[in-house]
């Protein structure tokens, strides 16, 4: 699964370069993100390219959040397309995840 990592201040911004995050790629997503989560306390997932996220995808993001929180860090999400946001809402995950509009909004939220 293609993703790029860019350091901006304290925050590692991870852009997910995929159209969907479903059960077929959720394990791969977790595996590839694992080293980033180990190296960085603060991680921002840019979901801008995603058009579909299923329960396995939500579960993968949730496991990332738990890993980062366990290290005393934080994980936030930004740039969610409308349907992707709907997935979070249907599973009521928007209540426990920090979901922000743009990357700027998210970086500002990290610095507070």
């Amino acid at each position: 699964m293609d993703m790029s990592v860019e350091q901006k201040g304290d925050v590692a911004v991870v852009s997910v370069r995929a159209d969907h995050l479903d059960a077929s790629v959720s394990e791969e997503f977790k595996r590839e993100l694992a080293p980033v989560l180990e190296e960085h306390q603060f991680v921002l997932l840019d979901m801008g390219q995603l058009r579909f996220v299923d329960s396995a995808g939500l579960g993968a993001i949730l496991s990332c959040l738990r890993k980062v929180s366990g290290n005393g860090g934080d994980l936030k999400l930004c740039n969610l397309a409308k349907p992707v946001r709907a997935s979070f809402e249907i599973a009521r995950m928007h209540r426990i995840m920090d979901i922000l509009g743009t990357e700027e909004d998210a970086l500002r939220a990290f610095s507070r």
Binding site: G59, A60, A91, M93, I96
Partner: peptide, 9 residues
């Protein structure tokens, strides 16, 4: 819904 378990959704 509190994030303690990944499955079941």
């Amino acid at each position: 819904f509190d994030g303690t378990r990944e499955g079941g959704f």
